[in-house]
């Protein structure tokens, strides 16, 4: 009885260990809309339309700094600053004329907005002697929105357009620079990840004959 049981267990074990697993194959497929940065002779950034109550740090300086350093490094192409007045909100015909001077180039432009709402709320704060007391304090809700467009200068064609939004609740009004930086870093990080994604992995079953 004991021998039979052992024999049966071994057979079951062998059956499961020998049973064939499905052949799963993985392959990359290009992501539609990935920007071919290497196709262009020159890449420019400029003309971002700004709608923000913040002047320190200066959003325009921060934007051009991001694109000409971090973004440039990530896409491995030199990005130059192109002084344009209003970018996307510039009358399109004027912008088209201006871009004719830069053949086979890519312009990165867009719209950058910050909306700050201030309100008061009751919060636990420490008084001068270190004791916790309830007091009215001002807090802010920050909303940063960045619309980025990649425009082919020759055909004046928008290759890709993305909008990123980040919010910061209960922000301290005294820490404007910190609030700006934390939102700006999150948005630019998302933009980088999306712009650099070129392939997506697909998974399929390869079938065996008779299956």
């Amino acid at each position: 009885m004991k021998t039979k049981l052992i024999f049966l267990s071994v057979m079951i074990f062998l059956f499961f260990s020998c049973s064939q697993k499905p052949l799963i194959i993985k392959f990359p497929v290009p992501v539609q809309g990935a920007i071919p940065f290497n196709k262009f002779d020159k890449i420019f950034i400029g003309g971002f339309h700004l709608d923000t109550p913040i002047t320190d740090p200066d959003p325009e300086t921060e934007l051009s700094h991001f694109f000409t350093t971090d973004f440039q490094q990530a896409v491995k192409r030199k990005i130059e600053y192109l002084p344009l007045e209003k970018g996307l909100t510039d009358p399109m015909t004027t912008l088209r004329e201006k871009l004719k001077n830069y053949p086979n180039s890519l312009l990165i432009t867009g719209k950058f907005t910050i909306d700050i709402k201030t309100r008061s709320m009751v919060k636990d704060v420490k008084n001068k002697s270190g004791k916790k007391i309830k007091a009215f304090v001002k807090i802010q809700l920050w909303e940063m929105k960045m619309k980025v467009a990649f425009i082919e200068t020759d055909a004046f064609n928008i290759l890709k357009e993305d909008t990123f939004t980040e919010k910061l609740k209960d922000a301290d009004p005294q820490k404007g620079k910190f609030n700006f930086k934390s939102l700006f870093d999150s948005i630019t990080d998302r933009l980088l990840q999306k712009s650099l994604k070129k392939f997506k992995i697909q998974e399929r079953y390869l079938l065996k004959n008779g299956k």
């Binding site: 497929v29 390869l206 079938l207 008779g210 299956k211």
Partner: peptide
């Protein structure tokens, strides 16, 4: 003449991979 679903499936994957 070995026409099976497996061959067509695998060829489909080949084409899909090639775009």
């Amino acid at each position: 003449g070995d026409e099976t679903a497996a061959i067509h499936n695998n060829l489909a994957i080949y084409y899909e991979r090639a775009g």
